[in-house]
Design a protein around this nucleic acid. Sequence first.
DNA 1: TACTTCTTGCAAATCATTTGCAAATAGATT
DNA 2: AATCTATTTGCAAATGATTTGCAAGAAGTA
Lengths: 145, 145
Amino acid sequence: MTDEHLQKAAQLLDENGLRKTRPRLEILCVLLEADSPLTGEQVFERVTAGSVDKATVYRTLLLLLKHDIVHNAYLRNRIRHFELAHHCKPDRCHPHFTCRDCGRTVCLYQAIVPDVQNLPAGFLVLHRQTRLEGICADCRVRHYS
Amino acid sequence: MTDEHLQKAAQLLDENGLRKTRPRLEILCVLLEADSPLTGEQVFERVTAGSVDKATVYRTLLLLLKHDIVHNAYLRNRIRHFELAHHCKPDRCHPHFTCRDCGRTVCLYQAIVPDVQNLPAGFLVLHRQTRLEGICADCRVRHYS
DNA sequence: TACTTCTTGCAAATCATTTGCAAATAGATT
DNA sequence: AATCTATTTGCAAATGATTTGCAAGAAGTA
């Protein structure tokens, strides 16, 4: 939890007119440090040693979601994954790649996703997210050695 | 549950060397009749009046998933949605569009999804699914009238 | 400093899904 | 058609992630 992250966290809360409480700051710092989407459980584990209740973690994530500070990544089923929304335009999220071998999920910030063509008439797209599955570079190398 | 669906259901089980039991045939017919991905709960409700146990519904859906007869649609969190895989190529699923207004999900079979560009080196994509969110044609009309 | 409202921690509830186990059944065999 | 054996099913109970109720505790304001 660097000072830089702490400041960014405080700023995000301020901008949205939310109270700067210790649990919220800690949870935002955890998300700022993460390099892939986290589950509620993972956020709970990473917050300074049991200092924040699990119910508070979930309530906070839901709050941040409502304010579009975080959004959901649609990965494995039955488990919600959260990530900060600041890498994405509101209507287009970067693709997530999940490796079938090692199970890890990578955010592909630099990938380019062309628009979907030939949508039925009258449909207005407000958000798009692409989910990729396959074998990551590390695992491919591992299999050939 | 038409005869045509029943036959198709039996065929799908045969092709995969699975026993043709009543619960399996009924569940497959429900999926064949559906025009959008269904949750386990929804499949359970649609199967002839409580004739199949809910545990069996879930076990069967998992079995069909393992044989790639059905696959998951990644929609709302915490709830798994299942649909027959026969509309998709193994590596590319059609996009799903969920309306923020009416909540309904539509399968966009006819949409064209160009490949993701600029993937990091060494990544092998085996499956792709696009999730769209927005306002469907019906709801847009409703709002302007 | 006092106050009012929003937040938190704790424990219990909920919801979708999974599992253990004995009884029932599909499909092969006689 | 009856028998047999491995699968599958129904039922009840367990699980795991998430949510909720509520009294005690802080944040921001007067």
